[in-house]
Amino acid sequence: MSHKNWNTSHTLLERAKQDSNNDIWEEFVVCYEPFIFHILNTFSVPHSSQADLSQKVLLRMFQSLKTYDSSKGKFRTWLGVVVKNTVFSYYNEQKRRSQHEKKIEEMGADHLALHTQESELETLIEEEWQLWVGSKALEAIRPHFSAAALKAFELSLQGMDNDRIASELSVKKTSVAELKARVKRKYIHEVRSLIQSLER
């Protein structure tokens, strides 16, 4: 009854929606765990509870995949909502389990709730996802370019204009434009294929 044969042509998310076996779960964890850790690090969740919380988040993502439809909404928006909800319910559960209810306010390494509004958090996760995909793409294209080309691209990302980049790198202004364009094209291509494999 399994659809193994035609599964291969589908994306991970599509397959995970249809069939929740262990192989797919593991593949899913490999794909998204690094980002979840990144997010937990970003929010300074203590190292010791990261493993547990990341498992929770991944499991929740996996189970709520059916609520995600790439043709109807953006993956990052969905991701923001799911991650945020899981993290909040995680902390709420811990509070509930507490036997010293009176002290709720003083308790818990509730870094998230201390520092951030709920709605803000969704946007933050969404933005972190974009930045994270960007940094993955940058890592992937790195071996294909000279240090100067990468540097030119990096500086242009930081908002530096071609004149200044040219003088920083001691190259001609026209070559700056060319270097930037080459890296940018490859970069966009890479982001696009990451989106294709992680969000569809």
């Binding site: 933005e127 974009q130 930045l131 995909v133 960007g134 940094s135 990096e154 242009s156 990302l157 930081q158 908002g159 940018k184 970069y187 966009i188 982001v191 696009r192 989106i195």
Partner: peptide, 13 residues
């Protein structure tokens, strides 16, 4: 500006 640029490129992609 870097974060903004990366987001823009992402949205382009």
């Amino acid at each position: 500006s870097r974060a903004k640029a990366i987001k823009q490129l992402y949205e382009l992609a």
